[in-house]
């Protein structure tokens, strides 16, 4: 557990968890559905159909504890739906999955969060008309003052509230949001909201953090700082699963990559290997990986893109 790590230990080995994750994953066969040495999350036969469309059809997938795992794939691949299923926000037609060895099938979202698996959303959900501090405090678990009868008597919950506030202040400081403490969350920029959402999720004290497109709509300067925060989650012993489109970011921070297409996991492996995978490159990592490559209306755009690639001066 991260709490066992003293400051000096961390100073000696700032990448202790990264090294551990790399080591653990080194011997894993890079094929879809590969067994991991110490999986925190195991999903089996999870399917979700919307009418005739099968949005998610995952045979078997394991997420290594203490690693940063990226989930990539083109739009409509079913990444977000898979996220929703795992966190209880959507119900699958079929399938089981376990978190820390305990089944999460049919568990409502708030119980999933209480068991230590906390998610963020693709469209950031800052609680606009609550202050940044109130947003943070909402994340704390086991609050006595959140029960109706005890809420009326502040002495019962005041001490706990103070402790939570101190913890929230520490987190806000880490995410450089401490100056925003008493502002309405709705006044913040898109990037700051992403930071707030991540900090708020940490208030729950999760073992595993699920980030749905944490970098979407964030400017490049802030991306670097967000990257640092995601890495630091791993160094505190948390497991991270995130959906992302930006391949540079995926390469930079992930220990393992899952590739999803048309609802299935079609490839997985270390990032370098996935980048080199011909099928993956062709289908998802080309110059135009956000759109179906065979879309006829995109043909002029593709031509233009490829001609620019041949002649770099043309882009200047």
């Amino acid at each position: 557990m991260p709490a066992d790590l003293t400051k000096s230990e961390r100073a000696v080995s700032p990448t202790r968890y990264k090294d551990a994750a790399m080591q653990a994953l080194a011997g894993v066969d890079p094929v879809p559905g590969a067994k991991k040495p110490d999986p925190i999350l195991v999903a089996d036969g999870v399917t979700r159909r919307f009418g005739g469309l099968t949005a998610v059809d995952v045979d078997h997938v394991e997420i290594q504890r203490g690693s940063i795992t990226a989930l990539i794939g083109p739009n409509g691949a079913g990444k977000s739906t898979f996220f929703n299923l795992l966190t209880g926000f959507d119900k699958p037609d079929d399938g089981t999955w376990t978190f820390n060895g305990v089944s999460l099938s049919g568990v409502p979202p708030h119980r999933v969060a209480r068991r230590g698996m906390v998610r963020t959303f693709q469209l950031t959900k800052a609680l606009s008309r609550l202050t940044v501090m109130q947003n943070m405090l909402l994340g704390a678990t086991g609050q006595k003052g959140e029960s109706f009868l005890r809420a009326i008597f502040p002495p019962i919950w005041r001490a706990q509230e103070r402790a939570n506030t101190a913890r929230a202040e520490e987190l806000l400081g880490r995410f450089r949001l401490d100056t925003k403490r008493d502002d309405f969350a709705g006044t913040m920029s898109g990037g700051q909201r992403k930071l707030l959402e991540m900090a708020r999720a940490l208030m729950v004290g999760p073992e595993m953090v699920m980030l749905d497109e944490p970098m979407a709509g964030v400017n490049p300067a802030l991306t670097q700082s967000l990257l640092g925060h995601v890495k630091s989650l791993r160094e505190e012993g948390m497991t991270v699963l995130f959906v992302e489109h930006d391949m540079d970011m995926v390469r930079d921070i992930s220990d393992w990559v899952l590739v999803m297409a048309q609802g299935r996991i079609i490839a997985e492996g270390p990032p370098e290997q996935i980048m080199a995978n011909e099928a993956v490159i062709d289908a998802y990592l080309g110059g135009h990986h956000d759109a179906p490559l065979d879309a006829p209306e995109d043909a002029p755009l593709r031509d233009e893109a490829s001609s620019r690639r041949k002649d770099p001066e043309a882009t200047r």
Partner: peptide, 13 residues
């Protein structure tokens, strides 16, 4: 918080 966004509140347990 529920008034603002109930899914966010669910995700926080």
């Amino acid at each position: 918080a529920i008034r603002e966004d109930e899914d966010a509140v669910r995700s926080l347990g």
